[in-house]
């Protein structure tokens, strides 16, 4: 992690976090080739909050997966904070992802066998951080997410909103540069949804870059910029006036 931090610092003269050029992604089954992304160009600056919208099947999730380094593009270039990511091996991507990226999913994806505390602690374990440091960081972030009193509970003992707060805590516990959120409010009622969006906005205001895929117009208004994807291409880009947190 330290290594990554240093390499990121050395690149701080450029403030572009994500630079995607002519990105293509195709999926091939035996008979059909589907072009999920067809020449996407996208730049995200450090500190931005970007929402990606579009109908089902337009390629939103594919794009987010590539940005999140969970998948490789078929063609084109993806530069993350000065590192070319396209063409890296899985193990190299894992290495680059660690500590730099945080993920928030629609279905929370907490591990059922681990407690709240242990779920949040997980990324720190893979960063090989020592125990005392881990405890301190996890407690801090749990307090911040107002879920510290539940640290010994298991995910299935929590409400949906609480689970998503744990998931966000897990995403931010490493202080990532970039948070990727895939429909973070999709499984939540509106009250909990708004709470989650406020949390993300807060994190963004503290300097974390956020890229979020969403179906919800309400959620997209929290972003600085909205990108509309259709059939694998960016069709429109619109600038939002940043909203104040809603309660």
């Amino acid at each position: 992690m330290i290594k990554n931090e240093q390499s990121l610092k050395s690149n701080q003269t450029t403030i572009t976090m994500i630079k995607i050029t002519d990105l293509k992604k195709s999926f091939r089954t035996e008979e059909v080739e589907t072009l999920a992304l067809n020449g996407v160009n996208l730049k995200v600056e450090e500190g931005e909050f970007v929402a990606i919208m579009g109908p089902s099947g337009c390629g939103k999730s594919t794009l987010l997966n590539i940005i999140g380094m969970l998948d490789n593009p078929t063609q084109g270039s993806y530069n993350f904070a000065g590192h070319e990511v396209g063409g890296l091996k899985e193990s190299q991507r894992t290495q680059l992802r660690k500590g730099n990226l945080g993920f928030v999913f629609q279905s929370f994806n907490l591990i059922d066998e681990l407690t709240v505390f242990e779920n949040v602690e997980l990324p720190l374990i893979y960063l090989k951080m020592n125990k005392a440091e881990r405890r301190e960081k996890v407690q801090k972030v749990l307090e911040r997410m107002k879920i510290a009193h539940r640290e010994k509970h298991f995910p299935q003992q929590l409400s949906g909103g609480q689970q998503q707060r744990v998931a966000i805590a897990r995403a931010v516990v490493t202080n990532p540069k970039l948070i990727l959120a895939d429909e973070p409010t999709g499984n939540l009622d509106s009250k909990n949804g708004i709470e989650v969006m406020n949390l993300l906005t807060e994190l963004n205001q503290e300097g974390t870059t956020i890229v979020m895929v969403t179906h919800s117009d309400r959620d997209s208004h929290y972003a600085h910029r909205v990108i509309n994807l259709f059939d694998g291409q960016i069709v429109t880009e619109s600038q939002n006036k940043p909203m104040k947190s809603m309660v």
């Binding site: 999140g68 969970l70 899985e90 193990s91 894992t94 290495q95 992802r97 660690k98 500590g99 993920f103 994806n109 907490l110 591990i111 997980l122 990324p123 893979y126 960063l127 897990r170």
Partner: peptide, 9 residues
């Protein structure tokens, strides 16, 4: 989840 959290294979 573990892989996304940075766990190598």
């Amino acid at each position: 989840v573990r892989k996304v959290m940075g766990a190598p294979r």
